[in-house]
Simulated scan of single mutants.
Amino acid sequence: MNDARERIHLRWLNVEDAETLLDLQLRNRDVFEEISASDRSESFYTLEGQVALLEGWAKAREEEKRYSFGIFLNTTQELIGEISLFELVLDHTDKWIVGYVLDQRHNGKGYMSEALQMVLKFAVDEAGIKRVEAGALPDNIGSIRVLRKAGFQEIGRQNINIKGIWKEHVMFAVDTTI
């Protein structure tokens, strides 16, 4: 298997990526909406909506509250996905969550496993994050496989609001200090 850096690379997404990100979002809208807890109103699916999203991510990165990366193929420079680490405060506890989406056309090729390893390395080496959590719908076998391959352990179940419906998720965590 090729070294991950030969197949994909990660970089910060910025406002100049808005059109490309919008194209990715529109092509995969049905799938992404089924797994995303974020607001995906009609305005989200506009160029202005993506610019606002990217501006928000840049501000959050400056505040060290969110790190959002585009996943790009090295051969074509195509944006094939997005992966983010973001901080939440739940029950007075800070938690770092990883969330990701991948263009359906690239599922099953190992790209997300590679991207997750790169993000976990960033979490340890550059952001000083000690623990990362993630959730996946129980029938999202691919995502569960990616998390387990990266060393995440199941820690329980939690209901998460997806498009106004509470859906049970399998929750995972990995301690990055090990």
Rank of each mutant, 00 (worst) to 15 (best):
I71L: 11
D3M: 06
A134M: 09
I80T: 07
Q50W: 09
N161A: 13
F152M: 10
E62W: 02
D139C: 05
V124W: 07
E82K: 09
H169P: 09
E19G: 12
D175Y: 12
L24E: 08
Y45T: 00
A58R: 11
V31E: 15
A60H: 10
S143W: 02
V124P: 00
L13G: 05
E19L: 11
F69V: 00
S84Y: 05
L24K: 01
I160V: 15
Q104E: 13
E168Q: 12
T76D: 11
F69A: 09
W12T: 07
S68L: 14
F69C: 13
N159R: 12
E126A: 10
I155Q: 12
A134F: 04
I35H: 11
D3T: 01
G151D: 07
I80S: 08
Y67D: 06
T177K: 02
D94N: 12
F72I: 04
L22E: 01
D125G: 00
D91L: 13
D17W: 04
F72K: 05
A18K: 10
F44Q: 08
A134P: 02
V51C: 00
R131P: 07
W166V: 02
G99E: 07
A52S: 14
E19H: 01
V31S: 14
G151P: 02
V15T: 13
Y100H: 11
Q158W: 11
Q104M: 14
A115Y: 06
D125L: 12
H169M: 11
K121T: 11
D23L: 14
H9E: 13
S143A: 15
